[in-house]
Nucleic acid binder design. Structure first.
Lengths: 193, 193
DNA sequence: TGTATCCGATACAGCTCTGTATCGGAAGGG
DNA sequence: CCCTTCCGATACAGAGCTGTATCGGATACA
């Protein structure tokens, strides 16, 4: 992928077309800009990753008995892809400039959360944990995922970073769940008073 | 700043020079690439922000009595700067491609953590909280900061996102601190067994 | 004051990318 | 079988950027 090699910003229509094996004429008759092309690619890949993950998590049997194992199990299936991170991060930064793109990004995140949370809740239920407020846990997971991904990719040989990442996820999930069959009101998630 | 307007990747030496009011000749006799220039800028700005924050946090009197107030107090002084985020995110993504740049980035983060943690620990001490393991809390704070910043900037009008950000920080700090004068071993931070 | 050094402005030659306009050919509908 | 429509390849003209090489002037130092 040209975007990964050159960076999204430094990629040109020419390069993309050359590497993909079609002409600039073909490009311009299908897309109006690289933004549009990339959004299409992202859309596709995003759905792939999501259904892959969902499939992995619902396969029989998920060999997890503790919350920590559940977290590790999920993380083992979330690819920490250098190239992909690089491109999406850059595009996200780029999208901040454009209100329309911002909205697209916000919707994408929402859709991902909506699609994934049920699966995660089901998995957590299997280790005896009930999510208190999925609408709060979702964004937090995304934030922690994004924030720790950079750290892991910047120090790819540092196992401690990966470890801290897992710890952080465990902490987060623990705080946002209760023992199954427990009344919510007993341990409310830490929220602004 | 050209980098913010055009994106780092789409910025050219020509544009940068024109806007900064010097010629390309001047640029090439001081830097070998835009990478080099941007690193210099970042270095400078990073130190500024750090000392500004430290100054703000040690000013008399910091009117905080609870952990949550302390978190809010700190966050009120951490600028959520659209343009700056955009550029640094893009550059970080770019840096992932280059081992040398990766090392520079890792060191920068380390330096920021080292410079800031003592101040934060002092502030937390004033609300009766002792940090268990600064070396674990630091990276987690950075990750959460980065991860939630995007979310806030993508939905700048959504107060709930900001709220969740604060909640997440509170959760994190709570888990990584104990009541002052308490023995560490009573409530170890959730770490990989 | 003369000389050495350095910095930065200008010029140069060449390359790459852009977006559109034109044109041929394939697919589909009547 | 013809006509229309659409897609994509090619051509075109223009614009912008790159990095270097050259040269003038300022500063420093003796």
């Amino acid at each position: 992928m040209v975007f990964a090699r050159e960076g999204f910003g430094r990629s040109t229509v020419e390069q993309v077309c050359e590497q993909a094996g079609f002409t600039r004429g073909a490009f311009y008759s299908n897309f109006t800009s690289l933004d549009e092309l990339f959004l299409a690619i992202w859309e596709q890949r995003s759905e792939e990753m999501q259904s892959d993950l969902a499939a992995f998590l619902t396969q029989e049997p998920p060999p997890v008995t503790s919350l920590r194992e559940a977290v590790e199990h999920v993380l083992s299936a979330v690819p920490l892809d250098d190239e992909w991170y690089r491109v999406t991060a850059e595009f996200t930064a780029h999208a901040l400039r454009n209100p329309a793109l911002r909205r697209v990004m916000a919707q994408r995140e929402e859709r991902i959360e909506a699609g994934l949370m049920p699966t995660l809740e089901a998995l957590l239920a299997r280790v005896g944990r009930r999510v208190i407020d999925p609408a709060a846990l979702g964004p937090a997971l995304v934030a922690v995922h994004d924030g720790t991904s950079v750290q892991c990719l910047i120090e790819p040989d540092n196992a401690a970073v990966l470890q801290r990442r897992t710890d952080l996820f465990v902490l987060l999930v623990t705080a946002h769940t209760v023992e199954a069959d427990t009344d919510v009101t007993h341990t409310p998630p830490e929220e602004t008073p």
